[in-house]
Write a protein that binds this DNA or RNA. Sequence first.
RNA 1: UGGGGUAUCGCCAAGUUGGUAAGGCACUGGAUUCUGAUUCCAGCAUUCCCAGGUUCGAGUCCUGGUACCCCAGCCA
Length: 560
Amino acid sequence: MSQAEAVSAPNFIRNQISEELQQGREGKIVTRFPPEPNGFLHIGHAKSICLNFGLAEQFGGDCHLRFDDTNPAKEEQQYIDAIKEDIQWLGYEWAGDIRYASDYFDQLHAWAVELIKAGKAYVCELNPEQMREYRGTLTEAGRPSPYRERTVEENLDQFERMRQGEFPDGAKVLRAKIDMAAPNINLRDPILYRIRHVHHHQTGDKWCLYPSYDFTHGQSDAIEGVTHSVCTLEFEDHRPLYEWFLNNLPVPAKPRQIEFARLNLNYTVTSKRKLKLLVDQGIVEGWDDPRMPTLAGMRRRGYTPASIRNFCDMIGVTRANGVVDIAMLYSAIRRDLEENAVRAMCVLKPIKIVLTNWDEGRVEGLRAPGHPARDDFRERELPFTRELWIDADDFMEEPPKKFFRLAPGQEVRLRNAYVIKCEEVIKDDQGELVELRCTVDHDTLGKNPEGRKVKGVIHWVSAEHAVPVEVRLYDNLFLEEAPDADKDKDFLEHLNPESLQVVQGYGEPALAEAHPEAHYQFERVGYFCADRHLSDTERLVFNRTVGLKDSWAKIQKKGS
RNA sequence: UGGGGUAUCGCCAAGUUGGUAAGGCACUGGAUUCUGAUUCCAGCAUUCCCAGGUUCGAGUCCUGGUACCCCAGCCA
């Protein structure tokens, strides 16, 4: 772990807790990460994970993992498994066992009964449309439900019958009796329980009614002794309700809710609903498609846990809504991989080179460092032969000024090898390039040629020894900075048709040993990662994590 | 005046009790370089949404505006 991570950035929540601790207002702190298992975790969740687990880490407290599983209709075991794996992959450890809000269903039910007994909750039979009408609008107060003044006995009886399964889905709900005229709509007699005759992934068929988020979250926090319940800004309006339950129920503790702004990334959607749509419609190949901003997708793409944690540190935590430039993410992963990725040469768009003054059949075993600045990386062997592959981007028949690569009559350095000169361009009848005839300057291995400067360096592989590789070049999934900003345009209209481009290339021999998930820098090209599902010794598949910075591309762009 | 929030460089973001605008990303030079990468140096807000006011002094306090975000699911 780098130093930058060791000293993670302070933020308003951290400052607040730090102050509380100094004033002795708080003992051991407890936070929690409460995902709903209805989809995969994405980069936005990473921000929350880093915050919650980070806080616990920084202050010597605990962070719980609690699945917020109050809506079984949308939840699945596969998501639970994926979420656990993602959190562990990121390098965090939850305190104690995994918890489920459903662990507390009995207690929650008992508390609901107490609320009824105290005259603070009632069974309501308004249908959804009626309920909406009675709720009023943002500017007008709501009206009390006709069921609001039922007796405690009747409510108790009704609620019990709801639990027994006497009524169909949606027939009745249990509501808190708070204030139908409250300016905060969340306080207009919110729903506590609704009837759902569905199997629950944890509790099976024990229940046919399930508590709402509002009735579950704060009490669960209290039961677990959570001290700081950190959530996103949209729950701010729920805080009075969160507190209402804590104040009206005999809970064992009084956690506090603190809100922060969720992460927005440009060229990206971070909404589980939309991500699920991409998966369900087959627009991507699954939740872990390398183009997805899910942690599973990013992992497959080649992001490292350190880079993601670092990124979360870079973006900070505030209450201000903003949009983070995806360039920051790229910067974070480049920073990690620049230091830690093994170097290799790989040709993505091959052009054949024939060295006319190199004997046929002659193989010279050249060597190259595994990393230019580290000696703890193993050296690689690079066989050098008469026929080589180089990248099409590194040759131009009519080069512009400042093109420091190969061109007719021009010299270039083959990385880790010799300087060559292009003598002849061979084309077929259609005028398509077939091969380049070049000569080697035999006196340039490990030293510069006499009397002249060769500025360009290009990568290459021996045609005879190269290993075929499939390389998947990924780009942003969306062309628009804010794909979901336009209210009357579907975000799918902004899909990038070229978000995935598959090419067949040639890699240096060492790549044959690439184990799944190994990170490489293909020199002069970018960072790549052997696909953890598809790549093996039979078939090498590399995903481009991110390209290297390319100032030549910038120069070209300016020129055109 | 429905309620709740937020406004500091192109983007993210620090800014203790008011004392004279951190850092990162991006960008622009220039140096080094067998990766046009990395690294290295240098530059990049007389100004903190706007307008008034208080003060010797305000991004930080007061007043009044403006813009944007969230809330009317038996989702979380």
